[in-house]
Design a protein around this nucleic acid. Sequence first.
RNA 1: GGUGAGAUGGCUGAGCGGUUGAAAGCGCACGCCUGGAAAGCGUGUAUACGUUAAUAGCGUAUCGAGGGUUCGAAUCCCUCUCUCACCGCCA
Length: 425
Amino acid sequence: MIDPKLFRNNLNEVAANLARRGFALDKEKIENLEADRKSVQVKTEELQNQTKTLSKQIGELKAKGEDAQPVFDKVAELKKQREEAEHQLKEIQEQLTEIHLTTPNVIDESVPDGNDENDNVEIRKWGTPREFDFPVRDHIELGEMENGLDFSASAKLTGSRFVVMRNRMARLHRALIQFMLDVHGQEHGYQEVYVPYMVNRDSLLGTGQLPKFEEDLFAIKGSTQDNRPLYLIPTAEVPVTNLVRDEILEEKSLPLKFVAHTPCFRSEAGSYGKDVKGLIRQHQFEKVELVQIVEPENSMAALDELTGHAENILKLLGLPFRTVILCSGDITFGATKTYDLEVWLPGQQAYREISSCSNLGDFQARRMQARYRKDKKPTLVHTLNGSGLAVGRTLVALVENYQTAEGKIAIPEVLQPYLGGINEL
RNA sequence: GGUGAGAUGGCUGAGCGGUUGAAAGCGCACGCCUGGAAAGCGUGUAUACGUUAAUAGCGUAUCGAGGGUUCGAAUCCCUCUCUCACCGCCA
């Protein structure tokens, strides 16, 4: 969430910033609620103070064996008034909290204006798409060969947007995961973590998926005793970032850099016509995720670094890609700045998203109360995350870019150690 | 799944209805002492929110979470979560 103080002191600037996203902030409502909050809160606390003071007097009088009845009467008079004020305050605060939790983050000045993905700005490009001297197969065709991707099996087992992988596809997929974890863990300095694939509501509130995007999540009924469901994670960002929820970290422990491999589960509500075939958009997919917890002044540099780490995987695999900065209309809810990596897919003759790297600023940290001690004072950290990379899409890119005329897949050198040294599958 | 015991500040641990945001010890910070250090002595040491120019004062809330009883709750009642121990089952 945005600093609530900004709503009080800089409402117009916040509204103008959010308007760049196409988000209309209800300024009048906020102003009214804030004005009410202020007067009611002051009144409530004043009444609480009086009650507390009088109650203490009763204690003193009783200890001395004196008559406390007059004070009793006084406090009884206050009670109704106090409870009314408390109730009123609670309602106002609930409304404000609702606004705070559903308002997106403010965006960085360097984010370009725009309405949708068409207005994203390419900032660099790496590699050259390969020229093929034979008819190019897309990953679905390549998957059908050697029974690698079996969508009818997964449809039988579960439904659409799932996959069964076999043989070379399953092996390549697994090798990619190991490779990515090793590069980030051994070369980029991330601590490898293994985390739960189900999380509670507090975690999802912390990273911002809730309360606004419940329809994108899979909830597991009956998964806790008090009837609140757990949720399947839509990304490792949720469990990994929440590692620092409600923590006060030591300054010298920062930056924290985590890498985790997890499956991700997304309902893909509202994407009915999109990418219906193939591996691009699945309800369940694997991802290697990078998360950094940093001091505020370092977060923009950390974003560049983290993006570079994700890019490095593509470079090591020899997959052509471009890096775009998301425009104000395309950037996600909690991000203040985001770079997308788009990999070249010969089967589609297009660059497609394979990683999204974001600086969330203090947006998640404030929701999570994730802080560090800066000159003895608890200060909100900044959080970042990025895919390093989406494994399913990397598999698509790999097989399409490295296919041979015979429908074999050449194995990039860096991946060979993970496949017993072979150079073709 | 069963039975029992718990959950208090950075840690250990007291308190079980009244000036308790919370004893004591440890740790940590600063000061005194010292040639320097240790020991000793002294002082201080949670977080959020509000008010405010203020990380100064002052106020409110917080003793696993939520609800309740009460003039007043860390202390009593209810629900839930988690932890530990033993038994059962199990990858």
